[in-house]
């Protein structure tokens, strides 16, 4: 038991929280944008799967270019989520149904293509002994070696080896740091740009937006597409920056957690960072405790995120509180001009 109360254990939990929280962070941010625009997208899990397979395949055919894979993953996620946009915005279908169907479709398509191309059994193409993103600061060192900036490279190596902090914060792949960067960007986008307040208005009061010449449905399409891109990016994290290859159901239900995290984060991007790392931390703690043979059944740790989301939702219930905390008023309601 003593092993648990050490700095190195804490560092590995923290490091795990960050590593496991990042694939939750991207889809959560995406879903926040989407829901703030008034569209509930339960299909995150399916979009992530599509993003992961597309990202993996793109990187594979591009000779192991993980950046390319990441972009294609995001675009594929965005494109795939347009199915949801079409069904719910243009055809005014029920958003829950469409979302659940999107998950099933995502599983179906990735299984079909994955099995057909035998992607899941493919021997890995390696790039500098590593597939995809492994360690940002190591990658950075190589980058600086190339252009003869040894001191910086040494600094990076030093940084990684700092007691505690090095292990917890500086031994991650570039995705993690992009995630940290994206959170303030999304915050600025949502609160400080014209598009941001337009999105808010479309999610809060679409008829107001309509009277001001804002094309409500067009904005909503955009929100769903952006959300899908983030989810696709989160999906691409799995093969490109974590597992190293693609397997069926690689996201293992994390898309659903992302949907829950949005509620946990009160629809605010800055809270999403906290929430994602918290949930990532729970998972990391569970894994780390397991390796130390601590007798806490992993099932109970595993259900914690779901249970805590229900608890949060119960606290938020009762309309008024939910309103003040930030659930968009028009969430889940298709917009249609009255009377016509």
């Amino acid at each position: 038991m003593d092993e648990i109360f050490t700095l190195s254990f804490l560092a590995s939990v923290l490091s795990g929280a960050i590593r496991l929280g990042t694939p939750l962070l991207f889809p959560t941010l995406g879903e926040i944008i989407c829901e703030r625009g008034g569209v509930l997208n339960l299909g995150i899990e399916g979009i992530m799967l599509v993003g992961s397979l597309a990202g993996y395949m793109a990187a594979f055919y591009a000779g192991g270019d993980a950046w390319f894979g990441m972009m294609v993953g995001a675009l594929a996620g965005g494109a795939f989520s347009l199915i949801h946009a079409f069904l719910t915005i243009s055809l005014k279908a029920n958003q829950v149904i469409s979302g659940v169907m999107l998950v099933l479709l995502g599983i179906g398509i990735t299984e079909f293509i994955g099995t057909a191309t035998k992607m899941s059994q493919q021997i890995l193409w390696t790039w500098k002994n590593n597939w995809g993103f492994k360690n940002f600061f190591k990658d950075l060192s190589i980058f600086f070696e190339d252009i003869n900036l040894i001191p910086l490279s040494e600094f990076a190596t030093w940084l990684q080896n700092v007691e505690f902090f090095g292990k917890a914060f500086f031994q991650h792949n570039v995705f993690v740091y992009i995630g940290w960067l994206v959170v303030p960007l999304v915050w600025v986008f949502l609160y400080k740009t014209r598009m941001g307040i337009t999105i808010t208005s479309v999610g809060e009061s679409p008829e107001t937006a309509d009277t001001l010449g804002i094309r409500v449905n067009r904005i909503r399409y955009l929100c769903v597409f952006l959300g899908g891109m983030f989810a696709g990016l989160g999906g691409a994290y799995f093969p490109l920056a974590w597992v190293g290859n693609w397997q069926s159901m690689i996201t293992a239900g994390r898309g659903w957690i992302a949907v829950a995290l949005v509620i946990f984060a009160f629809w605010k991007p800055q809270r999403a960072l906290l929430a994602a790392f918290l949930f990532g931390g729970m998972e990391a703690l569970q894994i780390n405790l397991q390796t130390k043979n601590v007798p806490i059944p992993s099932s109970f740790m595993h259900m914690l995120p779901y249970l805590s989301t229900i608890v949060v939702l119960v606290f938020l219930s009762g309309g008024r509180v939910l309103k003040r905390i930030g659930a968009p008023s028009a969430l889940g309601v298709p917009y249609e001009r009255g009377g016509g």
Binding site: V188, K192, T193, R194, G196, T198, S201, A209, L212, G213
Partner: peptide, 11 residues
């Protein structure tokens, strides 16, 4: 809201 009076994307 909804005005496009300047090219600046920030409000």
């Amino acid at each position: 809201l909804g005005m496009k009076d300047s090219p600046n994307p920030f409000i």
